[in-house]
Design a protein around this nucleic acid. Structure first.
Lengths: 350, 350
DNA sequence: AAAAAAAATGTAACCGTTTACATTTTTTTG
DNA sequence: CAAAAAAATGTAAACGGTTACATTTTTTTT
């Protein structure tokens, strides 16, 4: 592949002049520039950005670590990061970590070794202490979906506790009183926070969610199916189910319908994330919207130190989920009856 | 960030020795190695792979261009490429091209500039002539989902024509005789091939698909909805619908049910790709399986010139789709009646 | 048209590695 | 224990760019 030297030789100018043409420096005579550009074209010259990075100490690269890029949630995250990268003439270097802390550590090392201008981490296995160490050493690292006090400035996360509360409040408003939940078994904090928020809101109505009504599984469709089957096998009775995410919720609906329950007529199911799966499924999922693209963008800007472009009035480091009502939740049969009674009364009054 | 010089100075050895430690060269005394490793650790040293790339002319990077990473089809493609990259101690550099040939060209340039060891392209806008030029100049470029004779050795693609045929044969076997199709409006060849195969198979039964029974849209859920609505508005009558991909098929089902048709009872819908959407949707989609991960892996190996690891007996440069029967297709009402008649007769005979 | 000022171009050091080759140190051999 | 052989370490040139500074060329001024 042609180098700057080849171009310089061919164009009979110095490499400095070629470099100026490449970098659109205006201190080049038009005639020279055109000549050099022509030579570059015939040689198919492409600047070597690795060499440039060495001398400028900038790589125009944003590193991203996610567990699995084929999961639509992370694909959306990647999309958000990519859009910021694009705005800053940068590219995304994608690392998938295969669900182990070793693999996550490796991914991070390889991004550091590439001297990414910024690094965004969605880690599900690495311990807080490791992340703290990394962020303190390398300040261009941002941690997504974790709230670690020691490195609060480099964390962007969703208020999962609030999400759990909103889910519970929605189901309570529909008249439900018997709940169950299926959560992710991964060693991260989100499921704990979501569940804790859910329980808090139930507690306010003097309702509870006991241990037997919660089962765990992998945060995907299959995990949802299995988790619901465990609930059913254990004879748990419930009319409303809170799932860790949309994929699990969809798996849950499958398993429930397989078992003869109608969603939402017999059982209401609420998901989390609001990735586009939620639209595709039948019934369309009621879920909590996770502003993942906004979070991704915020994280990316933070990572490349473009704080100025972040709308700080709108968001601190914490984002809030919002309820999206679709068709997988409904009034409980009894509540529905009451509701229609009320409606009749209202109609009669009119 | 610490450099090799810092380590050398601190460890009181030459940079060559440090380099040998980094690269696990065995010509280093154990004692020296341990000492250097210790210094590297305290300094938090990470090798600068850009500098290394300059000197070794290898970047351990695989470039990938796709239209949109949040589309699960491309996310699967990325996953396949990533898995090969991982096997070769490499990383994936992801470029999304925003549905324009300019954007695609830019993405390719930026990957060339990074001197990726191999480059995999899924381009939906760039003309064949441009791709031919690129591949002829840079032999480590592989084009996915295109069959361009001039650069056949660097193309990996699906036999879309066969896919269309299989779809038609499946619907014919279910007794259908009135067809419609919704295809992608993007300027690529896949939809043409799929439709052509579909028509060929219909032709063999002296059936046809006229122009009015085909509408076009963006290859996503919304595009599917709109395309079906156009069909319905134009009073097209059909009992079987062939969609360009699963997302359009799901959109189509939405629109059909909205219009009062039951899928598959009134109208059968067949998709294409068999991405996991196909499982999530209700009814689960009958579709043509697109071995996208296998194709991605094959392309990645080809791009990094590891021909030896490709199972050539199993696959040339062309892959074949396979029919996956799920629940979105069924016998036509009349055929269903006949079928049950046959069944009764068989039962009576027994 | 010569001198001064401005613009264009060139020279060379540097970025952080790897690696062939030179040199020094250690081990083996007789 | 000295010489030879082997092993370990160091030196310096490359890799392909950028850029401060020096030099040359062109333009402006008088």
């Amino acid at each position: 592949m042609a180098t700057i030297k080849d171009v310089a030789r061919e164009a009979k100018v110095s490499i400095a002049t070629v470099s100026r043409v490449i970098n659109q420096d205006d201190k080049v005579r038009d005639k020279t520039r055109e000549h050099v550009l022509a030579v570059m074209k015939t040689l198919g010259y492409q600047v070597n950005v690795n060499a440039r990075a060495l001398s400028t100490q900038k790589t125009a690269t944003l590193g991203l670590v996610v567990p699995d890029i084929s999961d639509p949630f992370f694909a959306c995250l990647a999309k958000g990061v990519d859009s910021i990268a694009r705005q800053h003439q940068s590219q995304v270097l994608l690392c998938t970590a295969q669900n182990s802390s070793d693999s996550e550590q490796q991914a991070i090392d390889s991004l550091l070794q590439r001297r990414c201008d910024g690094i965004i981490l969605y880690c599900t296995h690495l311990a807080n202490s490791v992340l703290i160490d990394i962020v303190q050493r390398y300040s261009n690292v941002v941690v997504v979906a974790r709230n670690i006090p020691e490195i609060a400035e480099n964390c962007i996360y969703l208020d999962d506790e609030l999400g759990g509360q909103l889910a519970a409040e929605h189901l309570l408003a529909l008249g439900h009183s018997r709940f169950a939940s299926i959560m992710s078994e991964l060693p991260i904090e989100d499921p704990k926070h979501r569940l804790s928020g859910f329980k808090t809101a139930l507690g306010k109505q003097a309702l509870a969610l006991i241990e037997e009504q919660v089962t765990y599984g992998t945060p995907d469709q299959l995990g949802g199916e299995l988790a619901v089957n465990t609930l059913l096998k254990n004879q748990q009775i419930f009319t409303a189910l809170f799932a860790y995410n949309d994929a699990m919720a969809i798996g849950a609906i499958s398993a429930l319908e397989e078992a003869g329950f109608k969603v939402p007529d017999d059982i209401s199911v609420i998901g989390f994330d609001d990735i586009y799966l939620a639209h595709y499924s039948r019934p369309k999922l009621t879920t909590l919207h996770y502003p993942v693209e906004a979070i991704a963008k915020h994280a990316a800007l933070l990572a490349i130190n473009k704080h100025t472009q972040i709308d700080k009035t709108a968001h601190s480091h914490s984002y809030q989920p919002t309820l999206v009502e679709r068709q997988s939740t409904a009034f409980t049969p009894t509540a529905a009856a009451k509701q229609s009674l009320n409606k009749n009364q209202v109609e009669r009054q009119n």
